[in-house]
Amino acid sequence: MTSTIPDELRYSKEHEWVRLDGDTATIGITHFAQEQLGDVVFVELPEKGASVRQFSSFGVVESVKAASDVYAPLSGEVVERNVKVIESPELVNSAPYADGWLLKVRVADKGELNTLLSATDYRAHIGESGGSGGD
């Protein structure tokens, strides 16, 4: 189970993960979230240059029977969106932490990282809120 919540990432309560690399944060949804959602059929993401705000919705991930807003774990400017995931939404299911990433964002305030959950915290969070992901 630990591999489904990588230790090196930070997490939001809404089931997004973030990996910070210098000023650039890579954002996706967690293994838990994709599992709750089921087969992902559609991903909608903002264009490069758009700004996202921490804990505000920036896009949508849909399965056949559910549409889930995705929330930005950090504020910043979109430097890249994953075009491959728009063409092949199943990547969100098969590789949520790798090819299934959603956005790369130039982070405005690294301090926001402290408001996110560690892997341990997130593990506890989904233990508590079992089925809350994905609708």
């Binding site: 849909e62 399965s63 029977k65 549409a67």
Partner: peptide
């Protein structure tokens, strides 16, 4: 494409 519809997206 039913996620557009009221039975899934409700007020959205």
């Amino acid at each position: 494409l039913q996620t557009r519809e009221q039975h899934i997206r409700r007020e959205k």
